[in-house]
Structures are given as structure tokens and as C-alpha cells.
């Protein structure tokens, strides 16, 4: 047997690629991004220091304000929609129904597809001239209008809706696994006591599934902050700038509008926001548990 030090060494050597990635691609890039956000860089990076000037500009830019508002609207529709629809589907699937496997497969298949595909399909269905509106008018309801996709004040709702279509199955899958873990005795006890099923779900089952709900919300929240593809595919940020989102703001200013200082300031704001919200949860989830276990 080799001495202990040597054996540990091979573990360290095996982790060299990971160390390189962690140091350069994760820590290094974040610090670099934050550094640029305090400069006056345009197309090329300039390493001067202008304080919080870019952040001032950012929060005065209506494009950014609209992006943040849209993120909130999208996030609310997407997360609440997925949770409600996903929970209902899971509960109804858990009633010893025939063809459960088929229903489950149908509910989850959109999740296998990309947000690009999702966005393109829904943009076509909701097309203001040839989509649902025209179809319903052809069926005889001539006054029917549904042109939200071309309306600046409504298009973002549809993006949230399309996102919900893609991801609701995810919540269904997570919660269904949770429902299958609920003790049969709880149902027997409730039946004996004559408690109606909806009441059992509301007061007993949902609290029991709270950790699964948290998991689902975290997964959905990550998707919300990262939302980019579906907007590009479905509306391209339009009409005008009415469906812009922060992630798209950053990409646009980095690669099309050549203002990397403003773009990195926006990226830094996103980073800090996520850190503040998720940091405590992550610590709780992983490191406190680890200590208890060892």
C-alpha cells in the first residue's frame, strides 16, 4: 500500500480540471464581470473606475425597469401556474385511475422540449392574424379577437403561459412521487373520522409535501431568472421592448449594443439578487445537513 499522502495526491490530481474550472470559469468570471461593471467600458473593456455610474444608468433605463417588471410578471404566472396545475394533475392522477401512465407521459412530454420549440409553437398558435383568433372567427364567432401577442401590455402574460405549458409536468412528476409516499393509514384515519378528501389534502397532505414544493419552487425559480430562450423565440422582446427580460438585456448589451459595462452591471445585479435569495437556502439545505450527518 502506498503511503496515505500519495494516495490523497491522486485524488487531488483527478480534481485538477475541476479546480481549473472552479477558479477560472466560476470564481474568476464573476469577479471579472463585477470589475467591468465599475468601469466606463464600451465595445472593449477599459479598466478605469467610475464607481456606481453604470448602476445609476441601469436603474434609470426604462428598458431595464421594464425587463425587471416583466420578470416579475412572467415569474408569478409561471411559478403559480406550474404549481397549481402540477399539483392538481398529481392529485387527480393519484386516484387509482385507468391509463395513468398515458396521462403522465402526456403531461410531462413538453418538459423534454426546449424553450425555443415551446416559444415557436405557441407564437404560431397565438399568431394574431392566422392563429386562434382567425380559427374562432372561421367557426362563426366573427367578433372574436385574441391579439395579446401583438399587444405590448399583454404579450408577457402569454410568454408566462407558454412557459407554464412546458414546465407544469415537472411539478406534477415531483409531487406525484411525494403523494405516493403519503402513508395509507392517513387516508384510512381520515375516512374513519369522516373528513372530506379535499380537507385532508389541504390540511395534511400539502404540509407533508412541503419539502417537495420547495424543491419545485427552487427549480422553477432558477428557470425564471434564466428566462431568455422562450422570449427570443416567442416575441423577440417585442412588440417594441414590451417583453424584454433581464437575461436578454444583458446579452443584447454585451453582443449587439456593445456596452459591456452596462451589461455587466445588469449581470451583477442579477447575481447579487440570486445570491441574496438563494444563499441562505443553499446553506441550510446542504451544509447544515452535512454537519449533522457527520
Amino acid at each position: 500500500m502506498k503511503p496515505l499522502r500519495l494516495r490523497r495526491l491522486s485524488a487531488q490530481v483527478a480534481l485538477v480540471p475541476t479546480w481549473i474550472i472552479v477558479i477560472f470559469a466560476y470564481i474568476g468570471t464573476i469577479l471579472w464581470t463585477i470589475r467591468i461593471s465599475f468601469t466606463s467600458s464600451g465595445i472593449l473593456p477599459k479598466y478605469d473606475f467610475v464607481g456606481f455610474k453604470q448602476y445609476d444608468r441601469l436603474f434609470q433605463s426604462s428598458r431595464w425597469t421594464i425587463s425587471v417588471e416583466n420578470l416579475a410578471i412572467f415569474g408569478l404566472i409561471f411559478v403559480i401556474g406550474c404549481l397549481v396545475l402540477g399539483f392538481l394533475m398529481a392529485v387527480f392522477l393519484d386516484q387509482r385511475i385507468k391509463g395513468e401512465g398515458i396521462f403522465r407521459t402526456i403531461f410531462l412530454y413538453p418538459y423534454a422540449m426546449s424553450f425555443i420549440v415551446t416559444g415557436l409553437v405557441w407564437a404560431w398558435i397565438l399568431n394574431p392574424t392566422l392563429g386562434i383568433q382567425q380559427a374562432v372567427q372561421n367557426w362563426g364567432w366573427h367578433g372574436f379577437t385574441f391579439d395579446w401577442l401583438s399587444r405590448g401590455d399583454r404579450a408577457i402574460y402569454l410568454v408566462g403561459f407558454a412557459g407554464m405549458w412546458q414546465s407544469a409536468g415537472l411539478v406534477m412528476a415531483i409531487l406525484l412521487a411525494g403523494l405516493r409516499g403519503v402513508d395509507e393509514d392517513i387516508w384510512k384515519a381520515a375516512r374513519v373520522d369522516g373528513i372530506p378528501p379535499w380537507r385532508v389534502y389541504l390540511s395534511i397532505v400539502i404540509p407533508m409535501l412541503s419539502s417537495m414544493f420547495v424543491t419545485a419552487v427552487v427549480l422553477l425559480a432558477i428557470a425564471v431568472v434564466k428566462v431568455y430562450d422562450i422570449v427570443v423565440a416567442m416575441t423577440g422582446g417585442g412588440p417594441g421592448i414590451s417583453t424584454e427580460v433581464p437575461a436578454k438585456f444583458v446579452i443584447d448589451y454585451l453582443f449587439n449594443r456593445q456596452n459591456i459595462a452596462l451589461a455587466t452591471a445588469a449581470a451583477s445585479v442579477m447575481f447579487v439578487a440570486v445570491l441574496v435569495v438563494l444563499g441562505p437556502w443553499l446553506y441550510n439545505q446542504y451544509f447544515r445537513q452535512d454537519r449533522r450527518a457527520s
Binding site: G28, W32, V250, L282, F287
Partner: peptide, 24 residues
Amino acid sequence: LIFAVLLLGAFIPYQVYLYPLVRM
């Protein structure tokens, strides 16, 4: 440390990494 960074990295929006990564 590796674990913590990777864990956090999974949740952070990619926009933070993009520009420096392009340069690197």
C-alpha cells in the same frame, strides 16, 4: 470549497459568466 462553488454555480444566471468566458 469545490462543492460550494459548484452548487452556487448551478443556480447563478449564466449572464454573469458570459463576457469573461468569451475573453478567456
